[in-house]
């Protein structure tokens, strides 16, 4: 899952640093991800994991780091 998340970030987050140099807890916004880019990340995660982020999860902190995203995706795919 981490691999998949990292690939999506590589393609959509428009980071100023190479994703492979960032740890799972690095702040993606600090690494250059804009609000608009985070929307594209969110949509790509939905398509890739076949989930839909509910309104309560459409916020900055949910997409702050690789591990925050993993936690959110795990919550959405639990019981699937």
């Amino acid at each position: 899952m981490i691999e998949n998340i990292r690939n999506i970030l590589k393609e959509h987050a428009r980071l100023s640093a190479d994703i492979s140099t960032l740890s799972d807890t690095s702040d993606l916004y600090q690494a250059g991800m804009t609000s608009h880019a985070s929307v594209n990340v969110m949509l790509a995660l939905e398509a890739s994991f076949d989930v839909e982020f509910p309104d309560r999860m459409l916020k900055r902190t949910v997409f702050q780091s690789v591990s925050a995203i993993r936690e959110a995706v795990e919550e959405l795919t639990a019981g699937k």
């Binding site: 609000s35 608009h36 985070s38 929307v39 594209n40 969110m42 949509l43 982020f53 309104d55 459409l58 916020k59 900055r60």
Partner: peptide, 14 residues
């Protein structure tokens, strides 16, 4: 749209 809800939440939070 849905992405917009996220942008709006970000804008408010910041």
């Amino acid at each position: 749209g849905r992405g917009g809800r996220m942008l709006a939440a970000n804008q408010r939070m910041q």
